[in-house]
Amino acid sequence: MTAGEFGEHAEVGRPDGRVVHAWRRPGSTRPVLAVHGLSSTSRLWTWLLAEDPDVDLVAADLSGRGLSTPRSDASTLAGHVEDQLAVLDALGLREPVHVVGMSLGGFVAVQLAATAPERVRSLTLLDGGSPMVRRPTSRDQLEAAFADRTARLATDWPDLASYVEFVVAHTAPLLDPADPHLATCLAHDLERGRDGGRVRLDGRALVDDAADTFLTDTAADALRRLAVPTQLLHAEWSAGAGSPPAYTDDEVAAVVAASDGLVTAELLPGHDHAGVVMTASGAAASVRVLRRSLATG
């Protein structure tokens, strides 16, 4: 997937001089705003688009990722919500949209629905969006937890293949390094695309976002204010077969029970966090859940 295949590209200027880059691939469904994860970009949705070409998908690079400019101040969930609303406005999408978010994107999605419920029809959360019980408790711990991501930033990668190999070895061990969708996704990370280069990821923004997600009550407060139908698809593992999941079954059951019927949840067995979207089988499951959300209207 290339930017051109989205059909519509918007450079959305922000009041602080930043630019957020967003793309839309029109389809037959109601519009879906897709929000990627902590260290990813808009090209995370390559697998989903391949699985369901009919989805009308809007996806932006979050600030400090891909082509979008980093913030000069702290990166926060609230800041990402403001950017996503600006993207919708720039594309003329004033009516409520369905929102799908993976990992950090799930937390942004919940914050968006809590902040501007009139702009959101439903949420589809992919292994994210609900506060995690087992989480880092300090910025130092966060920096250690995401050292594999920030370690990418020190290298001028000679080619895409070497970068793909590093990501699979250090972050997503169940992904197939020969998957052409993975190459498409990760090429957007690099300054020179398939010819390599530095990773277009702001390390401070990554840790800032993780800190707002894990070290504050922002995510829990937003979840308590949720007022739109929400589905959570959660993975059996976190990073590799047998690893502890982001959410245990008991933790998910507690979120569902506290939601007064707004939240439903489904376990995706045999997949880890990355594989919920970045594999053919995970994308198929994600599309199935998203289609249920789309059926709500």
Score class of each variant (00 low, 15 high):
residue 293 S to L: 05
residue 43 R to F: 10
residue 29 T to Q: 02
residue 236 E to F: 13
residue 171 T to E: 14
residue 45 W to P: 10
residue 117 P to C: 00
residue 37 G to A: 11
residue 95 E to F: 04
residue 194 R to Q: 14
residue 182 L to Q: 00
residue 245 P to H: 07
residue 123 L to Y: 04
residue 198 R to L: 02
residue 258 A to F: 06
residue 84 Q to S: 04
residue 253 A to E: 15
residue 21 H to F: 02
residue 297 G to A: 09
residue 153 L to K: 06
residue 74 A to P: 04
residue 286 S to R: 06
residue 60 A to V: 05
residue 101 G to C: 10
residue 111 Q to R: 11
residue 152 R to S: 07
residue 273 H to S: 11
residue 60 A to H: 09
residue 231 Q to N: 06
residue 104 L to R: 08
residue 24 R to M: 08
residue 120 V to Q: 02
residue 146 F to P: 03
residue 261 G to Y: 09
residue 204 R to T: 14
residue 71 R to S: 14
residue 182 L to S: 00
residue 229 P to R: 11
residue 26 P to V: 07
residue 200 R to F: 10
residue 120 V to G: 05
residue 24 R to W: 05
residue 220 A to G: 10
residue 231 Q to D: 15
residue 128 G to R: 02
residue 144 A to P: 06
residue 222 A to W: 10
residue 22 A to I: 04
residue 81 V to W: 09
residue 296 T to S: 02
residue 266 E to K: 07
residue 224 R to S: 15
residue 161 A to K: 02
residue 4 G to D: 15
residue 228 V to P: 03
residue 222 A to V: 14
residue 149 R to A: 11
residue 136 P to C: 00
residue 131 P to I: 11
residue 180 P to A: 00
residue 220 A to C: 06
residue 219 A to Y: 15
residue 193 G to S: 12
residue 8 E to N: 01
residue 23 W to C: 08
residue 211 A to G: 12
residue 281 S to V: 14
residue 161 A to E: 08
residue 82 E to K: 00
residue 178 A to M: 05
residue 109 A to G: 13
residue 134 R to M: 12
residue 198 R to A: 04
residue 44 L to T: 15
residue 184 T to K: 07
residue 203 G to Y: 06
residue 283 A to V: 07
residue 102 M to D: 13
residue 216 T to P: 15
residue 233 L to I: 07
residue 18 R to E: 01
residue 256 V to T: 13
residue 181 H to R: 08
residue 296 T to D: 07
residue 25 R to P: 15
residue 19 V to N: 01
residue 241 A to S: 05
residue 141 Q to L: 03
residue 114 A to G: 14
residue 56 D to M: 03
residue 91 L to H: 02
residue 69 T to L: 07
residue 296 T to W: 08
residue 276 V to D: 01
residue 222 A to R: 08
residue 288 R to A: 15
residue 10 A to Y: 08
residue 221 D to S: 13
residue 243 S to G: 06
residue 187 A to R: 10
residue 54 D to G: 02
residue 222 A to F: 08
residue 136 P to Y: 00
residue 43 R to W: 04
residue 146 F to G: 01
residue 5 E to C: 03
residue 192 R to Q: 14
residue 66 G to H: 10
residue 204 R to W: 04
residue 33 L to T: 01
residue 64 G to P: 12
residue 273 H to C: 11
residue 216 T to G: 14
residue 118 E to N: 07
residue 242 G to A: 12
residue 110 V to M: 05
residue 280 A to I: 06
residue 150 T to P: 05
residue 271 H to Y: 03
residue 114 A to M: 07
residue 15 P to N: 00
residue 66 G to C: 04
residue 289 V to M: 13
